[in-house]
Simulated scan of single mutants.
Amino acid sequence: MMPLIAWQEHRDNDASDADFCSTHVVSLVDAAVADAAAARLHRPDIAEVRHPPAYVLARQRRYTAAPSQPRIVDGSVGCFSWRY
């Protein structure tokens, strides 16, 4: 998760669509989603792990996978990506 957040912090504002779709960023998102899937659902910070990948999945036009992330942790407004 942290590598994805670090990439977003340093590149998101000036990143092109091609940057978001690079194999490196795709692998960062896939790893973050896999880590979240392996975590317990009721962890207090699970929403913070689900929302950033959803944003990047949408930027990658992976529209089927993107909405499933926040739906898993419904009711999590106020987590990291919402208060950033």
Rank of each mutant, 00 (worst) to 15 (best):
R61L: 04
P53I: 01
A37V: 10
E9W: 13
P44Q: 05
C21N: 13
L57E: 01
R59W: 05
D74N: 07
G75N: 02
R71F: 10
R40F: 11
T23H: 11
D12I: 13
E9Q: 15
P44N: 13
D12G: 11
R83V: 04
V73A: 08
A34I: 06
S68H: 12
R61M: 03
N13H: 14
G75Y: 06
C79Y: 00
C21P: 09
V26Y: 03
A6V: 09
A66F: 04
L4D: 02
R62I: 01
V73L: 00
S16P: 06
R40K: 06
W7M: 03
S22K: 05
I5S: 07
A15K: 05
A15V: 05
A32L: 00
G78I: 01
L4K: 00
I72D: 10
V49T: 08
Y55N: 08
R40I: 09
L57C: 02
R61I: 03
R59L: 09
C21V: 02
V29P: 00
R50A: 05
R40P: 12
Y63A: 11
I5K: 04
Y55Q: 09
A32I: 03
A58F: 09
D45G: 06
A31W: 00
S81C: 10
A47C: 07
S81D: 12
P3D: 02
I72K: 15
V26Q: 09
I46P: 09
Y63M: 11
S16C: 05
A65L: 10
S68Q: 14
L4E: 01
R50I: 03
A31V: 02
V33Y: 08
D30C: 05
F80H: 13
D17C: 08
A38H: 02
D74T: 12
A36G: 09
A15F: 04
D30T: 05
D74P: 13
A54Y: 07
D74W: 12
S22G: 03
D17F: 11
D30V: 07
Q69S: 05
R43C: 09
D45M: 07
G75E: 06
A37M: 13
Q69R: 07
A34N: 07
R83Q: 04
N13F: 14
R43M: 05
R11K: 14
M2I: 14
E9I: 07
V33K: 05
F20A: 02
H24K: 13
P67F: 03
P44W: 12
T64E: 14
A18K: 10
R11C: 06
H24D: 14
A6R: 08
F80L: 15
Q8H: 15
W82H: 11
L28S: 03
D19A: 01
L28V: 01
V56Q: 01
C79G: 02
M2L: 14
L57I: 02
H51S: 07
V56W: 03
